[in-house]
Every structure is written in structure tokens, then in C-alpha cells.
Simulated scan of single mutants.
Amino acid sequence: MTGPEDTGQGRIRTDIAHNARVWNYWLGGKDNYLIDRQVGDMVTGMYPSIGHVARADRAFLGRVVNHLAGPAGVRQFLDIGTGLPTVDNTHEVAQRVAPASRIVYVDNDPIVLTHARALLTSTPEGRTEYIDADAHRPDDILRAVERTLDLSQPVAVMMLGILNFVLDTDQARSIVRRVMDAVPSGSYLALTHPTLELGGEGNAEAMAFWNENATPPITARTRAEFAGFFEGLDLLEPGIVSCARWRDGGATTVEVAQFGAVGRKR
């Protein structure tokens, strides 16, 4: 990209790095600016495994959606904190398995909004929608999804790498509870979250640098804090693990400092 764009939501900031664009850079995408690449390279210099984290998180999404759309039989997905589209987005994976799947993406990043058209594709049998909304305001999200999702039927709620931008843990838990209270028994919650555990101690310096030079600010959480998001849900095997090792079939040789887990609502 060569310059700022007008999204109708305000001008995209090209003078400060933004998570969606830096994450896109780490995944090998092209939807980023020089400042994003500079900050991304600085973070990588301080925490060399960050690229592995980004790729492991994306691979986790694929395995989770394959399972939920496949053996679990889920046909509705609510993906909060979509980020920029790359390869094998939620709707592509779900509709490949079950063409009638319905997917709603949620994000409030103006650059993601400009790329929403790339997400708004669907099989003839299914449906894909994009909602411009803030994860901090779950009631707004729940009202908007009713156009596409039937909240009386099970929904897979995907919140990958998004709660780390909600700095207050009580607020983050409240957001999760509000969304999961609105979906019925048989629904699922899939989460990933960075941590200073799992060998991620070296990420503390990189996170501090990020919070001084990029947006939005980020926080890590412990295993116990991460587990709190699944209160009242039944964790699927293998429970809380590095997202790289969630049902990877033993293929993963590198453990990343990013928790991953999936829970089912009773």
C-alpha cells in the first residue's frame, strides 16, 4: 500500500503501526505500510518467534473451524476481531467443509473495513457478512448479528488474538460472558491469547516496545487468567495448550507462547 485511504470512518493512520497491518506483515501479506514493517521488524528483533506465533494462530483457526464445521456439526460462526483477510479465512474453511455455513465477521479497524469486500463472499448455500463493531461493545455485536445468525441455534464464537487488546481482565471476561450468554447450549468458544509463559518471557520487552510505538496496546495473560474465560464451559481435548499444539496430530515441533483452547457450552 502506498498511502492513506478514506474509509468514510476517518482517515487511516499511516504514521503509527497498527496491529492488523503488522500481523498481516508477519503472515507475509502486502496490506501494510512502511511504519508497520519497521515496527514489525523491531518486535521480531526483540522476540524472534513472533512470526511463528502469527502462523501458529492462523493454523489453529483452520484446525478449529475444520473440527467445528465437520464432526461437531456447527453451521454458524461469529468471528470477532477478524483482522485483515489472508488465506483460509473462517468462511473459506467452514464453507469448504459445510457449504451452508453462515459466518459473521466483526472488526472496527478502518483498514479492515476497506477490505471487507474480500470477506463478503460465500457459497450459494451459505452466507457471509461483515459488521463494523467494537469488541468492547458486545451488545452492539449481538444486535447486529441477528440479521445473519439464528441465536437459537449453536454458534461457534471465534475470538483469536483479540482479548489481549482488552487490557482489563474483568472487562475481558465480561465481554466473553455476555457473548456466550446470548448463544444456546451446544455453542463453542475458541480463543487464543499471548502469554509470558510457554517460553514467552522474552516477549515482555517486545510488548512494552509495542505499547509505546503502535496501536492498540496489548497485554499478556497467565494460564489461570486465560482459563477464566472458559468458566462454565467444557474444554475440548487437549484443553489449554500452546495454540500450535492444539490437535496438531503431533506434527508441531515448535511451541509458541500463545494459548489456544476451545470450550463447549453445556
Rank of each mutant, 00 (worst) to 15 (best):
P99Y: 08
R247G: 10
W23I: 06
V87S: 09
P71T: 05
E231N: 13
F230I: 00
T82W: 03
S185E: 13
E255L: 05
L142S: 11
G73Q: 06
R55V: 08
Q258V: 14
G263I: 08
L198F: 06
N203R: 15
D15T: 15
P184A: 06
V65Q: 04
A118E: 13
G45H: 09
T7Y: 07
A206C: 03
V262P: 04
G186H: 11
R55M: 07
Y25L: 13
L235M: 02
T222D: 08
A56I: 05
L142Q: 08
G3H: 13
Q258C: 13
F226E: 02
G161E: 11
A224C: 06
F60I: 00
L120A: 12
Y188P: 05
D170Q: 12
S101M: 01
P194E: 07
T192A: 04
T148S: 12
A135K: 01
E197L: 11
G10Y: 06
P99K: 06
L61F: 05
G10F: 10
P217C: 06
L142F: 08
H193A: 00
H18P: 05
R127T: 11
L160Q: 09
D41E: 14
R247D: 11
I175Q: 01
V176W: 01
V254T: 15
F226G: 00
A17L: 06
A69D: 11
N32Q: 13
G10P: 06
V74T: 04
L27V: 07
M1D: 11
I80L: 10
T192I: 08
A208I: 12
R63D: 08
A206R: 04
A214F: 12
P194T: 09
L167K: 11
L149M: 04
L68N: 01
C243S: 15
V254M: 15
Q258H: 11
Q153C: 04
N164T: 07
N211H: 09
I162H: 00
D134K: 14
N211C: 09
V155M: 01
S174I: 02
V39A: 12
R102Q: 10
I50V: 14
L34I: 07
I131V: 14
V157P: 00
T219Y: 02
G83C: 04
T2E: 12
R221K: 10
Y188F: 15
E92H: 07
R177E: 10
D181Q: 15
A257S: 15
A204S: 14
F229R: 00
L142A: 04
V155K: 01
I50H: 08
V74A: 01
N24T: 02
R75S: 12
G10H: 05
L68Y: 01
N108A: 13
L119M: 13
V43Y: 01
I240Y: 00
G3V: 10
R223Y: 14
F230E: 00
Y33H: 08
A135P: 07
T121C: 08
P99L: 08
R245K: 15
V166K: 01
H67K: 00
R245Y: 14
A261I: 02
D248R: 03
W246I: 10
G45F: 09
Y33F: 15
D57C: 05
L163D: 08
V53I: 14
R127G: 13
R245S: 14
G263A: 08
E231S: 15
A257M: 03
T121Q: 15
S101I: 02
V74I: 14
T219S: 09
